[in-house]
């Protein structure tokens, strides 16, 4: 780690103004930031809009781990990944959006694979609610109406 501290550091500023000091090697795991660095339009502080401090900290944690353990055993990384992606839906979605926006491939892969594993056995209704913005009450009511229709007296 001492060698990486000596390397160039970058400052990332999240949407709510918090700043993170990150080694360049870690920051450039995001393709978007890498392009900025290569084009030399990143002077010292790189704004990361749309990503708040909480999520940015998680992304940085992931990138750091992956940078450190590049040469290490892959199984360690796997357990770290599986623990990392084990979060609530809200955080997961925010992370996916951030990873997609900043173009962090490994993170996006791990997250999306996790979501896919979660939903692969779900019902069609579940998918509609989860991704297409159908509301839960719609489905409940559609069943409810159907039940009333079936139960009603025809007179």
């Amino acid at each position: 780690m001492s060698s990486s501290l000596e390397k160039n550091m970058l400052i990332l500023r999240s949407s709510d103004g918090e700043e993170f000091i990150v080694p360049e090697v870690v920051a450039v795991m995001s393709k978007a930031i890498k392009n900025m660095v290569e084009d030399e339009c990143a002077s010292n502080t790189i704004p990361v809009p749309n990503v708040d401090a909480n999520i940015l900290a998680m992304v940085i944690e992931f990138c750091k781990k992956h940078d450190e353990s590049e040469a290490e055993a892959a199984s360690d990384l796997k357990t770290f990944d599986s623990e990392f992606v084990n979060r609530g839906q809200e955080a997961l979605y925010d992370l996916i959006t951030a990873a997609n926006f900043r173009d962090v491939k490994e993170l996006l892969d791990a997250l999306c694979q996790n979501v896919a594993e979660m939903i692969k056995g779900k019902s069609v209704h579940h998918i509609r609610i989860q991704f297409l913005g159908y509301q839960l009450f719609e489905i409940l009511t559609s069943n409810f109406i159907w039940n009333i229709w079936c139960d009603r007296d025809f007179d």
Partner: peptide
């Protein structure tokens, strides 16, 4: 809504 992902994603 923040709890939904963009559809293309």
């Amino acid at each position: 809504s923040s709890s939904y992902l963009p559809l293309d994603l």
